[in-house]
Design a binder for these strands. Sequence first.
RNA 1: UGGGAUAUAGCCAAGUGGUAAGGCAACGGAUUUUGAUUCCGUGACCCGCAGGUUCGAAUCCUGCUAUCCCAGCCA
Length: 548
Amino acid sequence: MSEHTTPTNFIKQIVEEDMAENKYDEIVTRFPPEPNGYLHIGHAKSIVLNFELADEFGGRTNLRFDDTNPLKEDEEYVNSIKKDIEWLGYEWDSLRFASNYFDQMYDCAVHLIKKGLAYVDDLSQEEIRQYRGTLTEPGKESPYRDRSVEENLDLFARMKDGEFSDGEKVLRAKIDMSSPNINMRDPVLYRIAHATHHNTGDTWCIYPMYSFAHPLEDAIEGVTHSICTLEFQDQRPLYNWVVEQCDMEAQPKQIEFARLNMTDTVMSKRKLNWFVNENYVDGWDDPRMPTISGLRRRGYTPDSIKQFCREIGVAKVDNTVDVRMLEHFVREDLKLTAPRTMAVLRPLKVVITNYPEDEVEWLDADINPENEEMGKRQIPFSREIYIEQSDFMENPPKKYFRLYPGNEVRLKHAYFITCQDVIKDEDGNVVELHCTYDPETKSGTGFTGRKVKGTLHWVEASHAKDAEFRLYDSLTKDDQEGEDFMDKVNPESLEIVNGYVEPNMASVKPEDKFQFFRHGYFNVDPKHTTDEQIVFNRIVSLKSSFKL
RNA sequence: UGGGAUAUAGCCAAGUGGUAAGGCAACGGAUUUUGAUUCCGUGACCCGCAGGUUCGAAUCCUGCUAUCCCAGCCA
């Protein structure tokens, strides 16, 4: 499955040691999303880590939905999550839901009650908070803490049977109200929620909390290495307590790593949600979103995302990876696979005055000069073409080697042309250029008579196909002044321009990817492209050392 | 002021007592029918700071400092 070599990391080393000690027959990991949102690039880091770690040691990985909170979860998300993981190219060994284990979890809770390690508490939410103490002061024990096993058993059964309303009672672990670790101060194990669950419907009106459910899920599935993010470090003692006190056979090991942060990118569900709810973006799959579906629509390939995730490494330091690193990996992936073609995003008409009228010649062009196997294409050339507005300047600065009055440049795959006249409208805007060409300079003839500094891309006017180009920038900018994330929002994250592409682009399909000469890599937008109009998303521009 | 973590170049990140890998970015230069690609070259007199142990420390010890996480019936 994997040809790549992933750099080592501390988790891999732990697994290596465990394998060396024959601690497990097989390593088992899991990717445990809560179905309450779309997957993003940060999740991809976890997916790649979990799936490839297990794969590397011949183990397996489950996809397990952590659906213990029906108030927030929805079927829509489980479908999108499955789809995204499949698109990335991973196959889970087994598809599970935390809700599959509700019966066993209930039994475990009863088991704890019988051991005198759990009790039903009548304190209100507010009271529980007050009794918990603070970071520096210990908590106080609930007056209900010492109920008898029989009473707890009865009360818990009645909680399950729906005798109480939401918030009236909870089941708590009996651990230590004065623990310096707040998670150990009698954490809530079960709460009452009369809500319909996407999977179990109305079967249950009590639902387990993450800290109780998660270790049990891992143990039930025989997960050996339960990988999660740093903020769960304080929960590890509780995780171990649950596994041990519930007398679970398997003893999964929780290992925490630092989540991914990226420059100019928001990763929290809350903030991502804001963009969607405000209709600032075109849904969760808007090409500017760092979601898997957004990156996909933007044009990122599964390999580029996975390679990025492998190369950024896995450690415990809070990190912010430069988004340019992600961009680097798509460029690298598309370099050899994306066909080259020419597109003029902001057209300027050029008339080649000494070229015969009504003549059209078809020129040979490599589809990808870095990958000859891709073959050739034919492109038309005639008296009228379009070039890029930014490829002409009437009064150029030094080191500008594109077109300007009197200057000669090369038209890619065609001829040298020299700018003779500049046509302007009443307002003084340049609307057309008159140039002459030199027939001797035709590409492919081996002409070496003289050299030219610039090579321009172009599209023949009469055969040109209309296209829309969507140019993206990040939704937020880190260097923007302000405390609030709203201050970071980039008002210019989307620019739409209309121009032309080569005639053979008429047959493109959604998600086809191209390199537009001198512009960058583009993806055919699957949502907005119609029979009448192709919409291209700019995935990433080409690097450029040119500065005006 | 409690507990848990982390500190290696602008950003990631190897390094696990023997004298600082690699990638991204940046900057030079060569090649170039993409100001792209490719190719070559440039970075830590030093590993948060201060002491100590040792023939020898980023790696061990001590003490500081900074940053992140924890007081949901969220995950």
